[in-house]
Design a protein around this nucleic acid. Sequence first.
DNA 1: CGTCTGGTTGACACTTTTCAACCTCAGTGG
DNA 2: CCACTGAGGTTGAAAAGTGTCAACCAGACG
Lengths: 341, 341
Amino acid sequence: MIEDNLDVRENLEEILQLSGYDVQGAKDGKEGVNMAKQWQPDLILCDIMLPVLDGFGILQILSKDPFLQNIPFIFLTAKTELGDIRKGMNLGADDYITKPFQKDELLSVVEMRLRKSENSASGPKQESQLKNLKRSHELLTKVFDKGDLRSYPEDYDFFSKGDRPRNVFLIQSGIAKGYRPHPVGRDFIFGLFTSGTFPGLWEAYHQVEYTNNCTTLTQCETLIVPLNVFAEELKKEADIGLYIKEIHHRQKLALEEKIIAVAYHSVRKRVALVLKELHDLGLGSSESSIELGRVELAAMCGSAKETITRTLSDFKDEGLIDIKSGRIVILDAHAISNMPD
Amino acid sequence: MIEDNLDVRENLEEILQLSGYDVQGAKDGKEGVNMAKQWQPDLILCDIMLPVLDGFGILQILSKDPFLQNIPFIFLTAKTELGDIRKGMNLGADDYITKPFQKDELLSVVEMRLRKSENSASGPKQESQLKNLKRSHELLTKVFDKGDLRSYPEDYDFFSKGDRPRNVFLIQSGIAKGYRPHPVGRDFIFGLFTSGTFPGLWEAYHQVEYTNNCTTLTQCETLIVPLNVFAEELKKEADIGLYIKEIHHRQKLALEEKIIAVAYHSVRKRVALVLKELHDLGLGSSESSIELGRVELAAMCGSAKETITRTLSDFKDEGLIDIKSGRIVILDAHAISNMPD
DNA sequence: CGTCTGGTTGACACTTTTCAACCTCAGTGG
DNA sequence: CCACTGAGGTTGAAAAGTGTCAACCAGACG
């Protein structure tokens, strides 16, 4: 906020701070510009009449700075004359507030401009990408039209850590695990791959070594395309890269969630998270119960298999799940999703 | 392995299995080709004289299949005649073994070809990428010549989860943390950024929302370039993408290591891993001791701060580190790196 | 000189793992 | 057909490892 009158400035600061905003004040134009460069605020409130450099001058300077040109800029002015306001808006200001102002008028203008700038930064771009992604997904799936359909038995290794990708996979049915093996039964499963997913896609696309193993947990019907053929197809459709990026981004997010869970959540919460993960994959209904062994579930939670058994029987006693000869059916998905930490 | 003589086949299978290889046998050419397509073996041993389809025919078929053309192919032949062998090699076989063979001759040929194919798949590609990467790193750093140098105080937020990148950063001095915040002091630090590193580079490059927060731990001199300028520069130098990919790949690996550590290693081991991580960043020597607070160290380990204090004083008692008014100096980096689980 | 922040230490409680035994079920061979 | 066997799953008891709570201490700061 740039405002030369100390009373007004302190008053404004107080109002905004009470509403949870973080406010920095400057007393003249020069200080204001420097501060803006230093702090890159989310929004600028600026008086028009100022010593040294007036509001119009500030706006002109800021609108030339690539760091600052997109920050919402709101004029504060004692003058209600149309001329000043018009001039400010013409220069590219986003809004104005006339002094003396109402508290809630100020806040609503500020909030609106913040929301708008949030949208303009993310809105259109996100949407345009999403449209591409949907198309890209179809394109990507189409690449596999040229692939072989193969049936792999349980416990077949698609790839191992350190391997260099030679093929790209699209699972049609069955489940595979992406995991890091450990010599004495302390595997950790990062995620599962079910029908419609592409194990190791990112590594194949970027031709980097796999960072973890991928092995079937059940028999898997899988479409498979050799990497050189895949690369050829990709050249034709550059957009696919966007989709691969997006998938990867989500996996990274999931990985980060998982590390938080393992670091700080109780086993009970972690088991619930794993069940939710499986539920989201379409597993755990009465038709398709969860057929994973306790060892696999333990590897997904990062705990001992006995602990999993115990927690599951707790859940069963509480009516959250049902266990039929080892297989789990989720009864109360809502309660499981909302398990307290 | 394709071999029509049952005795020879079983004998070979036994020898190879004893050496730890996983062997599938086929009795004629047709079966062999189908099996190769199905299993995509790491290496093929193949008799020349076979019913239905002979070894030469098999090799010709396989060398046209993009899935199979790069699998090492070794002829087994009873004939020692130069002609057959020559013909096989001309067709693209990788090696040959003459029957009757010595056990260790067989094994050494198999092992050699496996090793060679391993190298040819990864060797040259890796090298060519690495050369690019080195250059790309320089190019990337050069982009920041046009950036502003700014000094940020301790506890300044570069960005937060959910923000959309607006700038790209290159830290010149100081330390920042990449972390996931938590309402009640259960932050988790994914990694640190020191001089020469680029916080949030991948997200900026791909224009996706940040997945975690980044805040300075000490005062940081930082070069900063607005995203649109950065994007312009990138268009000129497409190679930079490779480098960004590589950095990201390493971070992902580190994240996976971390999740394993948090899931299965004791706090003692985890503290040692964190100390090693800091040591690798050049911290912890007597000149530049580790100045992180216990809370930050705890957030890197995923444990309570009191536990960190205890473990550190254990390490101190054991002579692995020294603590001078809270600051840590690593005395025995080797022992810390080799801490048992 | 008080106050405050961050580090250290101790006692205790709680969670989770470990070890061991037992159970069930499916496959196997006599 | 039945006993045997082995793999997974379940349960119990005890031990280990960590987190929590609370008190205390040391240095920094006004």
